[in-house]
């Protein structure tokens, strides 16, 4: 019977949801990938940022390249990473270790968390790291829910990061490296939260 751990987890989740949005520590993560399938494709780079009390701290920004990456076919074109840059990268193990320290004890935020979290878990299991975010927030899911609730049509591109940001009047970013995207995601989350809470101080449960 997994009743006890289940209860414990339920209680922890409940307490988390009952805490205020600005009480939590968040880490916003974006990965650059060579494809969409964990196990088959690889992480090219990872970037993270911390957010506390609704403030995104740029001094906590972290960025790491995976120098073991094999297949750069897609990423080079898109994000301007060349082989020279790769040489300065770290090993995948180092990368996942840094991610683990960044994530543990924080609420993880991603745009399309299924993808990024899938990759992180996959790599973490390979190197036997335990990565346990307090919760996972997906800005894409939040947006999808909002759009559906407003009865607006969902199309293929209406949930991309830049489309979502445009909806809140957030500036367009020219760069699309992992760190820029992480910042973009963080800003999106703040804008979403303030739109959903309508300016009130609300609990985490309104966005999870």
């Amino acid at each position: 019977m997994g009743l006890y751990p289940w209860l414990l987890r339920y209680l922890r989740e409940y307490k988390l949801k009952q805490s205020y949005f600005d009480q939590q520590k968040y880490v916003i993560i974006d990965l650059e990938l060579t494809g969409l399938i964990p196990g088959e494709h690889e992480i090219v780079s990872a970037a993270w940022l911390n957010m506390r009390a609704s403030k995104i701290d740029l001094c906590t920004a972290g960025y790491m390249l995976n120098k073991e990456v094999q297949d750069l076919s897609q990423s080079t074109i898109y994000h301007g990473i060349d082989d020279d840059a790769l040489l300065e990268g770290s090993s995948l193990r180092g990368l996942i270790a840094s991610l683990a320290t960044a994530i543990n004890g924080h609420v993880l935020v991603c745009h399309n968390a299924v993808l990024d979290w899938g990759f992180i878990q996959r790599v973490a299991s390979v190197y036997q790291y335990r990565i346990t975010p307090k919760a996972i927030i997906d800005t894409m899911k939040i947006e999808k829910r909002r759009l559906l609730a407003q009865g607006r049509p969902l199309t293929q591109d209406s949930l991309t990061l830049s489309a979502c940001r445009a909806r809140y009047g957030l500036p367009e970013y020219k760069q699309h490296d992992a760190l820029c995207d992480a910042l973009a995601t963080a800003e999106l989350l703040l804008a979403q939260y303030s739109a959903i809470s309508m300016g009130r101080r609300e609990k985490l449960s309104i966005i999870i």
């Binding site: 609704s54 403030k55 995104i56 701290d57 740029l58 001094c59 920004a61 910042l183 963080a186 800003e187 703040l190 804008a191 303030s194 309508m198 300016g199 009130r200």
Partner: peptide, 17 residues
């Protein structure tokens, strides 16, 4: 500057904060 700043989202309601 870029490394030491913080980003906040300012709305009518949270500006006081």
């Amino acid at each position: 500057f870029a490394r030491h700043l913080q980003v906040v989202y300012l709305t009518r309601e949270n500006q006081m904060q």
